[in-house]
Design a protein around this nucleic acid. Sequence first.
DNA 1: GGCCTTTCTTCGGTGGCTAAATAAAGCAAT
DNA 2: ATTGCTTTATTTAGCCACCGAAGAAAGGCC
Lengths: 400, 400
Amino acid sequence: MRRRGSSKGRALDLIRSQGPISRVELAEITGLTQATISNLVRELLADGVVSETGRGESSGGKPRMRLEINPASRFGVGVDLGADSSTFVVADLAGTIIGRLGIDGPGALGPADYVRRMADDLAHLLDGLDIDRAAVVGLGIAAPGPIDREAGVIVGAPSLAAWSEFPLTAELSRLTGFSCVLDNDATAAALGEFWLGATEVGSTYASVYMGTGIGAGIVFDGTVYRGSRSNVGELGHVSVDARGPECPCGNRGCVELYAGPHAVIARAREAAASGGIDLEFTGVAAADFAAVAEAAITGHPLALALIEDSAEYLAEAIVSLVNIIDLDHLVLAGSAFEKVGAIYVRTIQHIVGERALSRHLQHVSVRMSVNGTDAAALGAATMVLQEQLSPRSLQSVTLA
Amino acid sequence: MRRRGSSKGRALDLIRSQGPISRVELAEITGLTQATISNLVRELLADGVVSETGRGESSGGKPRMRLEINPASRFGVGVDLGADSSTFVVADLAGTIIGRLGIDGPGALGPADYVRRMADDLAHLLDGLDIDRAAVVGLGIAAPGPIDREAGVIVGAPSLAAWSEFPLTAELSRLTGFSCVLDNDATAAALGEFWLGATEVGSTYASVYMGTGIGAGIVFDGTVYRGSRSNVGELGHVSVDARGPECPCGNRGCVELYAGPHAVIARAREAAASGGIDLEFTGVAAADFAAVAEAAITGHPLALALIEDSAEYLAEAIVSLVNIIDLDHLVLAGSAFEKVGAIYVRTIQHIVGERALSRHLQHVSVRMSVNGTDAAALGAATMVLQEQLSPRSLQSVTLA
DNA sequence: GGCCTTTCTTCGGTGGCTAAATAAAGCAAT
DNA sequence: ATTGCTTTATTTAGCCACCGAAGAAAGGCC
């Protein structure tokens, strides 16, 4: 039985994530022979994506050569496309962000106009960086779902309703000249987490992504799980009260109605109206939520209660997620966790540890993403890097 | 990139599920060349698991040979181990049940004694069948989770609490001489559904299994998804009211408390106590639920309301499942659906069609398992057949 | 019969891997 | 310095599953 993914890609993954590493270690980890590794590494060296950087300490015989990723050999561009704002990042092969640009969301702009603006902004961003344009392998787009990944269209995001007919990847590809791929923002964040080696390979984990909506990306053994149509992990529309209020999505009692930024803001507005808290609201969800979060960590008890309440509801949905897909790790990412991530981590860890069915068998670890707010954009960038350099897939493998 | 699973196994899968099929068709479906298929088929013929059964209709040239599975060449034994009752089935390679035996559950018997009884009963069952003992490839055990699949132990099933330290597969293997594997009952049911060809390969689907508990088995592209520790799909402990009553599992508002057989029985008992319905209760969950179900389909409005209520709650949990893992198909299996499956199918189809987030992108089909009540036992039998004849796995594939 | 079509098999050849032999690079004892 | 030992890296031959092309077999049609 063969493994999925090319061995070359796997070797590259290891060199990237396990830092300076020798051929012998690669052979041990992969189970391939030293001969095979030697050949694969030769190709990687020829491709320029890996370099030999001195020798390791001698262990009695010939010292092993240290292999390292060559960060500047390839670059990926990622964009986190959101209603309120979008973020571009340019990442090198090591996953380091070498360029970043935040722009306003589409607002009143139609998709066609906004995409033109994106292409312009990206061109400027790249012009300002001293990198070889030919080393940029592509553009990854992270967007809130539901999406049609094959078609490259955001089909059903409530916050981007006008985009449901717009050929997003096709247009961006035409305007930028890059090959473009679209994926769910939570999925992109999860992939970025794996790419940066912060999660051990071989484990099953999910990212919980909260921007203005809530999503989950699932990574199984280094491979993104996309389900039947890439619309996996709509955690925000897991119900925490099946007989609760109706959600615009059609379901009832969706956790987003209780834990999502919009819900937190709405309650904070109520509190403000009745004088319980002193906050100004801009009408931009991300900014308003940040204001509540800021109040919470600076000790305002009411704001803190709102955030803790949100964390509890989110944790309750996560318990269902864990009971359904049996996770090892959980990683929180997205702008909503920027200030108050620690509160969410603590609450979720506590509730999952108390309520998940398999809690006696295994400990589900919960922590913040190493990539913070840029997790989705960076994940989108790594997506194109991965697709180019170490393709792997569960989806494309058909049994018959 | 190679596919997972041996090509030989894939060819066998196709011959089994696609009925009489020619080499040319196999080549078309698998994408392998006719030459390769010819070689694989030769091996399968030599193994005796496949036979040539006459020629197909001529299409102008040499008529194609029809290949069929040789059902009597291998057999698998499966047992659905439950608290109230257990069921053995002996299945041939075509998935036909050629022997079946229902026995009482452990009751007051300890695991060691019950396992001895199981071994005896199985021996009798096999003695009564005219099959070559050497053609039996193994024994699959389906049990309610949580389980430790590697260790072969039922670690946390509330209804089988006494078994949490008992080396189940080791003991059964010692007593029967068969190689034993343990899996979740819902997972087994899902696998059985795939094995019998009732679900097209390449699709993502889940079985919802309701015996006395509620579980879900997830099959992705012909391969069982086992998560990190095989404790995937604990649908019964998905919450439908996060602030609802406490469940013995530690969570709150688990759907099992609303939709599970125990819940239905409890409400029926209340109704009976207040004279609303005339039913006798035995104290055995399966029988009592069957009585309520019987009343429901024979037109008793209160019983019908109870069942419909259960179906609605279950459907609400399923919406969360669908939103999380993006399914194509849903299959209902397990004893609870024996009489009232149609009601559940209708209700679930309706609610999922109305509430699932991706409902505009795809239609999630809902239907009863082709294997009915024996789905888990038959699935367990197919599990060992599959492991022997067409091994495949997501879990054992490690990236590093 | 001869000819065409379609099915199935045989026969080199290739890619990705392995195992085993060999080359290279260091340390240590003499 | 030379010899020996250890460990690392590369080369070599060979295996295995597969492919492509050519051939053999089995039918229909003229």
